[in-house]
């Protein structure tokens, strides 16, 4: 298990190096996608399936957008006769997906019933029972956000920080160029 984790971590590092060093934009985007999917598998291994699902969704969205941004010619025309096999395969895969979804939906607790009433020693019950004793905070939500899961909150704050740095860097460059042009016009 630990060995597999290390293999995926080295895969992530290798893909990140490829993304930094490759001269082609499309290769860099695909290598970044490999980093993201590797990270989501690592999250599955360390017992964080919710973050893994979020990472996969974000990764797919970002990959589509960045490939769309990097590809110059994206007009793809498929020539040839209409394939009946493709339709049958698509319907079959869709049907299998629906069957799995139905099986999972039967396992779900009824609507409105909390998971912590069904599972012994569930984390949510632990948070509600122990947050006051262990953290001294009256608000259990804040106790989870800033004590039990403070590392996640730090990650969220870092995301905002990085986003505003990127936005300012992107927007400020044009302003400096405008200012330079304006100063030259004034002089």
């Amino acid at each position: 298990m630990i060995t597999t984790l290390y293999i995926f971590i080295f895969f992530i590092i290798a893909a990140a190096l490829v993304a930094v060093e490759t001269p082609h934009a499309l290769s860099a985007v695909i290598a970044l996608g490999a980093v993201g999917f590797g990270l989501s598998i690592v999250c599955l291994f360390i017992g964080a399936p919710d973050i893994a699902i979020t990472l996969v969704v974000v990764e797919i969205l970002v990959l589509i957008h960045m490939i769309r941004a990097t590809l110059q010619r994206d007009i793809i025309t498929i020539m040839g006769p209409f394939s009946r096999l493709n339709v049958i395969a698509t319907m079959l895969i869709f049907g299998i997906g629906v069957a799995f979804f139905y099986q999972v939906a039967l396992q779900l607790p009824p609507f409105g019933q909390a998971v912590m009433t069904l599972i012994e020693n569930s984390p949510s019950r632990f948070y509600l029972e122990e947050s006051l004793n262990q953290t001294g905070a009256a608000s259990a939500i804040t106790a989870v956000l800033l004590d039990f899961r403070a590392y996640d909150t730090l990650g969220e704050a870092t995301v905002i920080f990085t986003a505003i740095i990127g936005a300012l860097a992107l927007l400020r460059r044009t302003v400096k160029r405008e200012r330079k042009g304006k100063g030259a016009g004034d002089a």
């Binding site: 953290t135 001294g136 905070a137 800033l146 403070a150 704050a157």
Partner: peptide
């Protein structure tokens, strides 16, 4: 009360 939580709240 709650130790570091108010400080972290102020920082955030």
């Amino acid at each position: 009360s709650a130790g570091t939580m108010p400080l972290i709240n102020i920082a955030i």
